[in-house]
């Protein structure tokens, strides 16, 4: 019975640790290491990145949602810390530009082919 209890408790604590690690990894993959060149926090080994990793893991253990963590870090470091910015007014051009350029290109191709005909 004792052995069984120890087994169950260990199993749950390992599962929980894995879940925290997975969430930490997924969040830090979407955070920019602000003192590195083109690396995410997840990829970097700088002090800054290590601090953020520890901090994110701590916040997850304190039952904060991903949004809470992102919001907190944005309030401290600005939108630059996010690698893939949300679809917000501020970044609307970033999201729309490729589609816009594609449509403009298509328009010119069709116009040109009409002219040739």
């Amino acid at each position: 019975m004792k052995f069984f209890l120890v087994f169950i408790i260990s199993w749950f604590s390992i599962a929980y640790a894995n879940e925290v690690q997975d969430r930490t990894n997924s969040i830090t993959k979407n955070l920019r290491c602000l003192v590195c060149e083109g690396q995410s926090v997840y990829e970097s080994n700088s002090d800054f990145a290590k601090d953020i990793k520890t901090f994110v893991s701590k916040k997850i253990k304190e039952k904060n949602t991903d949004e809470d963590i992102y919001e907190f870090l944005i309030s401290k470091y600005g939108e630059e810390i996010i690698l893939n910015p949300d679809f917000s007014n501020k970044f609307i051009f970033l999201w729309i530009a490729p589609i816009l350029f594609f449509l403009i290109g298509i328009f010119f191709i069709f116009r040109r082919s009409d002219e040739i005909r």
């Binding site: 701590k58 870090l73 401290k76 470091y77």
Partner: peptide, 13 residues
Amino acid sequence: SDGALSIQLGAFG
């Protein structure tokens, strides 16, 4: 000890 205070300050190093 773990950099948490610095993060609250938005510090880089």
